[in-house]
């Protein structure tokens, strides 16, 4: 072969370039620890996604410490859940799969980006250090309304984050002269115990009950309400726990009078 010296120089430079590129990528994997989506998530039968313990219920669960898991179903043309909230300073493992066609789960403006192929579970662990608001979009064509497939991811300050859920059972009406109760069930999605205060506001009065909930448990709080104290008429109430809020209306009706108004109990979940 008759190769010019300059060409040999360029050949050597090209090899340096190629090896340099591979070295950089390897550094990214070893140094900052960037890891590829791989086969760790395993396979799944798309028609039996609901039977998979990861996807029985989609959304955020607390694993322990600062570790969380988020199960997401990407389907034509939405994400379930479409609003995800995790705390800053957390390490979050996403499990994403699809019951229909190929999608992606891509958090805009970050390096969190995976294909979602039916039959496979995409698993990726991400560290969220700082609070922030991100959009989520599907960047793989998935049918006519592909462009409407989106969601949001909120990374909230650690002290604003909880997995507390509140559900309130309250009667719609009570006869004057009687007592009734408004029952608040508070559940704690975190693995840690939760000490908090449940508050009922009704008829201009405020009642506080301290409550302690075991990690991953739930507790009921009972507020006794005296109809006479409220007086006849409609009374709006609100139960608040740990930032969760539920409200409704309680009607106090004349015990002798049968034609009661049909005011309803609350299910207005904030």
């Amino acid at each position: 072969m008759n190769i010019h010296t300059y060409e040999k120089v360029w050949l050597a430079a090209s090899m340096v370039l190629i090896v340099g590129f591979i070295a950089t990528i390897t550094y990214g994997a070893v140094g900052p620890g960037v890891s590829m989506i791989s086969d760790d998530g395993g396979s799944i039968d798309p028609s039996e996604i609901n039977d998979d313990e990861r996807f029985e219920e989609t959304g955020v669960t607390h694993v322990g410490g600062n570790e969380y898991e988020v199960a997401v179903l990407a389907q034509a043309w939405s994400y379930s859940p479409d609003e995800i909230e995790v705390p800053a300073g957390s390490e979050v493992t996403f499990y994403v799969t699809s019951p229909d066609v190929t999608h992606s789960f891509s958090v805009v403006g970050t390096n969190v980006n995976t294909m979602v192929v039916p039959g496979q579970v995409s698993e990726m662990t991400v560290e969220f250090d700082e609070p922030g608001e991100y959009g989520i979009l599907c960047n793989e064509y998935c049918g006519e309304y592909h462009h409407t497939m989106e969601g949001t991811l909120s990374v909230v300050p650690e002290d604003e984050f909880d997995l507390t859920e509140l559900s309130v059972e309250a009667p719609g009406e009570v006869e004057s002269g009687n007592e009734t109760t408004i029952n608040a069930t508070v559940s704690d999605g975190m693995q840690t115990d939760l000490e908090t205060t449940a508050t009922l506001e009704i008829g201009g009065e405020q009642y506080d009950e301290d409550v302690t909930i075991d990690g991953a448990g739930s507790e009921s709080v009972e507020f006794a309400v005296d109809a006479d104290q409220l007086g006849e008429g409609d009374h709006d109430w609100t139960v608040t726990v740990d930032g969760e809020e539920e409200s409704g209306t309680l009607s106090v009706v004349d015990g002798a009078n049968d034609d009661s108004g049909d005011s309803d109990g609350g299910d207005d979940d904030a």
């Binding site: 396979s43 799944i44 039968d45 798309p46 028609s47 389907q75 034509a76 043309w77 939405s78 229909d100 066609v101 039916p118 039959g119 998935c142 049918g143 006519e144 309304y145 409407t148 497939m149």
Partner: peptide, 21 residues
Amino acid sequence: PGIDGRQLSLGADLEPALETL
């Protein structure tokens, strides 16, 4: 594992589209 063909258009798959809309 039991993966059917999909032609995801409003005609073929009305409900999710309406939901999205």
